[in-house]
């Protein structure tokens, strides 16, 4: 991944920065310039709580090449208390136990490595709340 692109995406990936529309309250992750609900342009920056609930999930058995060593792994759409939804891997658990309704916390982790000499890419992964 070209480093300018990686750098641009750091605020949302590292700090879970999102946007809330001042007009209608819609939360989008990451923040957008225009609200997808009301087209309002007054968007305030918020930080998402690092926790949420699984909306839907899967266990990937046939992965992309970069994730070959990790399969099978669970992935889920997680909704935070602010109403933002994000796609994450769910780790540190038996993948088949990741089902809708599961409570998770969002932890800062290594997401992927770009070959032997590329950059290390970070972001959040979900871990079931004990």
């Amino acid at each position: 991944m070209p480093s300018p692109r990686y750098t641009r995406e750091i605020p949302s990936r590292y700090r879970l920065e999102a946007g809330r529309c001042k007009g209608c309250g819609k939360v989008t992750y990451p923040a957008r310039t225009i609200c997808p609900s009301c087209r309002g342009e007054e968007i305030e920056k918020i930080n998402l709580s690092p926790r949420g609930k699984v909306v839907t999930s899967t266990v990937i058995h046939v992965p992309p090449d970069d994730f070959l060593m990790e399969a099978p792994y669970a992935m889920a759409v997680v909704e935070t208390p602010e109403g933002a939804r994000l796609m994450t891997q769910v780790v540190d658990c038996e993948p088949s136990t990741v089902l809708p309704g599961l409570e998770v916390s969002l932890e800062f982790r290594l997401i992927r490595k770009e070959g032997k000499s590329g950059i290390l890419c970070y972001g959040h992964k979900a871990v079931p709340v004990a």
Partner: peptide, 23 residues
């Protein structure tokens, strides 16, 4: 930026749609 980065595949996305439908 929001999906593929984290390791999801196309079958994976439809699998999530399927699980939501089942649920």
């Amino acid at each position: 930026e929001l999906e593929v980065y984290y390791g999801v595949t196309f079958p994976g996305l439809y699998a999530m749609i399927a699980r939501a439908h089942m649920h």
